[in-house]
């Protein structure tokens, strides 16, 4: 493993909600290698429950899932004041604009299209976690961050 462990990543917790076990395993390998703590949930409902129980530093949320999809989970998160500000990075295999717009409307913090490579994933996650840290340091949400557009690849 050549991936360097980021000092910022230490102790940061990421919840991964993804129904595909292979992708989930690969993402976990990559994120753990980068120094993050990762908790994987295989469906929307259990993911939502997990996030509500203890809001993590970042949520990696797949959109296409059976029963409760990523949009439904995101909507629930944004209704709840406890989870309203948790950064969410959406993952999807659909590269149509419909999904991008919807993610933006539901105030996702970013959007990454499958297949993606490890470097991209780590960069996006690091950026969102870093932003969170800055916000924490300032002790609140800056208006600029809230209105910022979702990041699209």
């Amino acid at each position: 493993m050549t991936a360097s462990v980021n000092e910022k990543a230490r102790g940061k917790q990421i919840v991964l909600v993804e129904d595909d076990a292979l992708i989930a395993e690969w993402v976990q390998v990559r994120l753990k290698a980068a120094g993050y703590e990762v908790d994987w949930l295989q469906n929307g409902q259990s993911g939502l429950n997990r996030i509500r129980r203890a809001p993590p530093d970042l949520v990696l949320l797949d959109i296409s899932m059976p029963m409760m999809d990523g949009f439904a989970v995101l909507r629930e998160l944004r209704y709840d004041s406890k989870t309203k500000t948790v950064p969410v990075l959406m993952m999807t295999a659909q590269n149509t604009r419909g999904d991008v717009e919807r993610a933006g409307q539901l105030r996702a913090n970013g959007y990454i299209t499958k297949p993606f490579i490890a470097q991209d994933l780590i960069a996006r996650v690091g950026k969102l976690i870093g932003a969170q840290e800055t916000k924490d340091a300032q002790g609140g949400v800056s208006p600029q961050d809230v209105s910022s557009d979702p990041i699209i690849i």
Binding site: I23, W26, K114, P115, I117
Partner: peptide, 15 residues
């Protein structure tokens, strides 16, 4: 099809 083909590809490329 788009979704179904991209999902395994993500794993193949990733691993």
């Amino acid at each position: 099809m788009n979704h179904e083909l991209r999902t395994p590809l993500t794993s193949i490329i990733g691993f």
